[in-house]
């Protein structure tokens, strides 16, 4: 068959079947990563709210071990933003979970906290001293969203491994 001639002909059912099959092959073999759609929607929401991105200022204790997600000691993370600062202490519970003790400073009122871990979201609120606890929290790649009461603009952290 001559491809030049075929190229100018209209698509037929066989072409549609061929393209459908290519799509099936790719859907099975190279699927859209789980969580990508949610991550995009989250990023768009944060953009719409003009979220401030906090900076990871300090990674305490076992930096190297924490990166490998096999740490067994307590470690701390510190995030800084214009609106507030946060210190987070991670205490391993088991292979899959950690306890998170957090302390938000720089904002007088209540702050609501969202922990985004893959497709899961966990919530917490600060007490009168600005402290909060998330226990248990799943290990893995996460990011935090802090929304001070009465404010529209949240503070989000970069993705970190806990």
């Amino acid at each position: 068959m001559n491809p030049d001639h075929l190229a100018t002909q209209p698509l037929d059912d066989v072409d549609v079947h061929v393209l459908d099959t290519i799509a099936d092959i790719l859907r099975a073999g190279d699927p859209v990563p789980a969580g990508l759609v949610d991550e995009v929607k989250f990023a768009l929401t944060m953009q719409a709210l003009h979220a401030e991105v906090a900076e990871l200022q300090a990674l305490g204790v076992d930096t190297a071990a924490a990166r490998s997600a096999e740490y067994s000691h307590t470690q701390t993370l510190t995030f800084g933003a214009e609106a507030l600062s946060v210190m987070i202490t991670l205490s391993p519970l088991d292979d899959d979970t950690v306890r998170i003790d957090g302390w938000v400073t720089g904002h007088d009122g209540t702050v609501s906290i969202e922990l985004r871990a893959g497709t899961r979201t966990l919530g917490a609120t600060t007490d009168a001293d600005g402290r909060f606890i998330i226990d248990p929290a799943p290990r893995g790649l996460v990011r935090f969203v802090f929304t001070p009461e009465g404010e529209v603009r949240p503070v989000i952290t970069p993705t970190v491994e806990i």
Binding site: M1, N2, P3, D4, H5, L6, A7, T8, Q9, P10, L11, V14, D15, V18, L19
Partner: peptide, 20 residues
């Protein structure tokens, strides 16, 4: 390079290859 839902070069090549 043409108007209408034609196959185009790539799909035509694939089609020719399959037909052979």
């Amino acid at each position: 390079g043409s108007i209408g839902p034609t196959r185009g070069r790539c799909l035509a090549k694939l089609r020719a290859s399959l037909t052979d």
